[in-house]
Design a protein around this nucleic acid. Structure first.
Lengths: 178, 178
DNA sequence: ACCTGAACACCGTTCAAGT
DNA sequence: ACCTGAACACCGTTCAAGT
């Protein structure tokens, strides 16, 4: 063991693994990418991944955290926009993540860590969306229902193919809820 | 080979396999049930399943067809009901099928047969829902968007836990689209 | 035509052994 | 503490051989 190993070495290699996994999970899919392929892309051995992560699901959660943080940063940088433009931004920006959305739902019932992440994600999404709806004038007692409708529509648009115009029509019609 | 083998023998054994697979896919999940377990439940050998189905995805599609047909029969038998009651009926009746919904979405991008089934399902769902919305007085130009919103909300309710009251609130708020 | 036991290919994960 | 090659367990699928 080298005496000059800096503490962030660990974080750096961990980040390389997560980066490799993110690209593969997004473009190829979680179920279709073997651990060996992630390891090769990250320049490590398969077993090394298990030094940093408990199992493949834990690696998935790390990828989800990274992707979510990145999306939140981008969204904040996009600045204030009207309500429907924000929704359309989210839909187009996150469209390439549809495989992640699907695999999270598929693994919720099998993996406790994915289930936990999913719960936390929806709590966060609900808070943000409810804030937007409140600002748009939705009645307080309708906020929970309106929020969940918005979440489900976003998830649906991400996991189903559709053209740009359909997305616009849907978001416009959703505006009727406000 | 027995000379008195009747042609429906094949259909009967096929049905036994599909029944076993349906119960396991619904209660345990597609990814968590090995072919060997389906075979054992159906009283055949693993390899026998491959005489009736190309692969596990083809078996999944057979299960989906059977479940869909059963749901359509039940729905028809339920008779005419107001629009929101129909939606609530679908949601409670199909809630136990959430694993099927999730795995279909997860496998759409990997399995052509599942992808085909998914396309056909949504075409069918769109027709039925559009009819309901039209009868409920939704403007013709809003029908496609309203239909997709309803589909996405139903799928969301099936794949996310929620209490009865939330479902009622959501369906009631959806009524604002009409 | 229908069914089977044995084998194959693949993959997530573990473990003893290294540095 | 960190990394590895080899092995293990599991599972979808195939195939040669039966009836």
């Amino acid at each position: 063991m080298p005496a000059n190993r800096r503490p962030q070495d660990r974080q750096e290699k961990r980040a390389e693994i997560v980066d490799a996994a993110e690209q593969l999970f997004v473009d190829v899919g979680f179920e279709d990418t073997p651990m060996a392929r992630i390891a090769a892309a990250a320049g490590v051995t398969t077993t090394t991944i298990y030094w940093y992560f408990d199992d493949k699901d834990a690696l998935l959660v790390a990828v989800l955290d990274q992707v979510l943080a990145s999306a939140l940063r981008e969204h904040a940088a996009a600045g204030e926009q009207p309500w429907d433009e924000q929704l359309l931004w989210v839909i187009t920006r996150l469209r390439r993540l549809h495989r992640l959305v699907s695999v999270v739902h598929a693994r919720v019932s099998s993996s406790p860590v994915v289930n936990d992440w999913h719960d936390r994600f929806h709590a966060l999404a609900d808070i943000n969306l409810a804030e937007g709806f409140r600002a748009a004038g939705v009645r307080e007692q309708d906020l929970p229902a309106a929020t969940r409708i918005a979440v489900f529509v976003i998830e649906g648009l991400l996991t189903h193919t559709h053209d740009e115009q359909t997305a616009r029509d849907i978001v416009r019609l959703l505006g009727a809820l406000t």
